[in-house]
Design a protein around this nucleic acid. Structure first.
Lengths: 186, 186
DNA sequence: TGGTAATAGTTACGCACTTCACTATGAAAT
DNA sequence: ATTTCATAGTGAAGTGCGTAACTATTACCA
C-alpha cells in the first residue's frame, strides 16, 4: 500500500456536499438514516455524527502535527499546561482536572515525558501522597520552541472561518459539552 | 476513590460560562491564551479547543453507552453498517472507507466481533484477496435490538437544541472536516 | 484519639487506533 | 508473458485512554 494513500485513508471517502440551505451535510449519513426515523431525530443524529467525525479528524490532525516533533496531542497539552503554571510545576491531579482526563492517563503521559527527559516527578513536601510534574530545562526549551508553531498549525484551518462562525462553533460545541455534563453525571 | 467520582472524572472541572453575547465559552482556556496572542487567533483556538473537548466527550459518551451492551462505539458502527448492507455483508475495505478509519482498525474491530459471535469472516470468491464481514444471526438480533435505543441515547442531548442550532452545528463541523481534508492531504 | 472515609497516585488490564512492514492476489503495461 | 504496480488484509509495535483494584497518606468525626 502506497504511503501517500495510507496517510489519507481515514479521511478519504467521506462525501460532503452542500444542502439547499447552503449548509454542509453528509449524503451517506443522511441516506442511511432517513428510512424509519422521525425527521426531528434525524437532525439530531446528523449533527451528532458531524461532531463525532470532526472530533476524530481534529484529533488525528493534532496527533500528526505533534508526532513530527516527537510528541503527541496529550503530551503537548501537558507541557503547555506546565509551562503556564507557577514554577512550571503541577500535581498530577491538577493536570488531570485541567486536561479533562483521568489520573491514570496523566500517569502514562508523564511516564513518556519523563522518559524523554522533558519532565520529572518531584515529591510534594506538603502532601506526601502528591507527586508534582516538573518541567525540565529541556522541556521548557521544547515547549517554548513549539508554542507559536502549534498555535499557527491550529489556525491554518480556523482562519478560513469568519469570526462569527468561530463563535458559533465554540458556542454550540460547549453547549453540547454542558448538556452532556448534566446527562452523564447520573 | 469513589465509584461515582471516577465516573465523572474526565468531565468534572471544566468551567463553562456565558459570554456577554450569550455564547458559551471556557474561562480557563481563554484566560490561559489571551496573553501574547493576537485576538483573531484567539477566536480560532477557542473554537478548535471546543471542538476537541466536544469530540472527546461525545466519544466517551458513546463508549459508555455501548459498553453497557457489551460493545464499543466502533464495533457498534460496524454492526450498524453491516445491517444496512445487502446480505448484511461488506468487504473489510468498504467498512474502513465507510467508517472513515484505517483497514487495520477494522481488522481489530472485526476480530472482537467475531470472538463474540456477532460477525464472521467469509472469503470473497470474486477476489481472493478480499474478505467479507458477514453479520451472524446473533449479530442481526443484537443490532436490531439496540438500534432504536442507540438513536434515542444520542438524541437525549441533541433534542435540547433547536432545529436551527443542530443544522448550524452540523454545517460548521462538516465545514471544518472539509477544510481539514484539503489541508491534510498534502 | 481512634476509626472511617476521602484523596493521590500507580499497577493491571483491555480496547481503540495509527503507522509500518509484509504477504497474497489482481491489474496493467511493455 | 513477464515485469511492475496497485490493492486487500493482517502481524508487529507503540500510544492513548478508560475502568477497576490496590497502596499510601491525609482528613474528618464521633
Amino acid at each position: 500500500m502506497n504511503r501517500s494513500e495510507i496517510k489519507d485513508f481515514p479521511i478519504s471517502r467521506l462525501r460532503i456536499e452542500l444542502d439547499k440551505d447552503g449548509c454542509y451535510f453528509a449524503p451517506d449519513t443522511r441516506g442511511m438514516l432517513n428510512k424509519g426515523l422521525p425527521p426531528d431525530m434525524l437532525a439530531g443524529i446528523e449533527a451528532w455524527a458531524a461532531v463525532r467525525i470532526a472530533g476524530r479528524l481534529t484529533h488525528l490532525n493534532m496527533e500528526r502535527w505533534a508526532e513530527q516533533h516527537g510528541l503527541s496531542e496529550g503530551r503537548m497539552s501537558v507541557l503547555f499546561r506546565l509551562r503556564k503554571a507557577p514554577d512550571q510545576r503541577l500535581a498530577m491531579n491538577e493536570l488531570a482536572l485541567g486536561l479533562s482526563t483521568t489520573p491514570r492517563n496523566i500517569t502514562g503521559l508523564v511516564d513518556n515525558l519523563e522518559r524523554d527527559g522533558l519532565v520529572c516527578r518531584v515529591p510534594d513536601p506538603e502532601d506526601r501522597r502528591s507527586v508534582q510534574a516538573q518541567l525540565t530545562p529541556a522541556g521548557i526549551e521544547k515547549i517554548d520552541a513549539l508554542w507559536r508553531a502549534s498555535v499557527e498549525a491550529q489556525t491554518v484551518v480556523t482562519k478560513r472561518f469568519t469570526k462569527d462562525e468561530l463563535k458559533q462553533l465554540r458556542h454550540l460545541c460547549l453547549k453540547l459539552v454542558q448538556l452532556m455534563k448534566e446527562e452523564m453525571s447520573r
